[in-house]
Amino acid sequence: MADDATTGAAAGGEAGIPQLDFATFPNQIFWLVVALVAIYFILSRVALPRIASVLAERQGTLTNDLAAAEDLKRQAVEAEEAYNKALADARAEAAKIAEETRAGIQAQLNEAIAHADAEIAAKSAESEARIAEIRAGALQSIEDVARDVAADVVNAVAPGQSVDADALAAAVSERVKG
């Protein structure tokens, strides 16, 4: 094996194994170091930062999208709540308006009834007054007619006899009042 090491690569295959041909070690080690340094720089300068940024960006995108989805969901819930609230408000408003309208109509109705009552009362009082007036007028007319009739009766019974008008009137009034 020591012979191989000194005779070099050409003899490697005959007696020993090429792995123990120490003459090629400096060459392999040199090129290995070159390769490792090259790969290290390719990776650390270009590939790794690029992949790290891509992964970070993807993570960021995912997080943003999830946050956006969460936000949209929250907005949807809020919108639903607002809708429900508006619906409830509108219902309450409608109920209030209906109540108010009903109360207004009731008040108008009451007023109208009261007005009608008052009018009826006034009308009936007026009618009663006129009836009383008419009745009083009728009594007076009866007395007048009775006096005239009494005067005519006296004339017919005792013509030419003067009649005391006052006494006659008083007598008729007395009889009529009876």
Binding site: G8, A9, G12, G13, I17, P26, Q28, A35
Partner: peptide, 28 residues
């Protein structure tokens, strides 16, 4: 074991530390 022999890529017998060899090629 012949497949493991380190040999210069562009002719020559000696493998100096800087000689481009088949090791260089396959690492490259």
């Amino acid at each position: 074991m012949d497949q493991f022999e380190v040999s210069p890529l562009f002719g020559g017998d000696t493998v100096h530390w800087y000689t481009p060899t088949n090791a260089t090629l396959w690492m490259g």
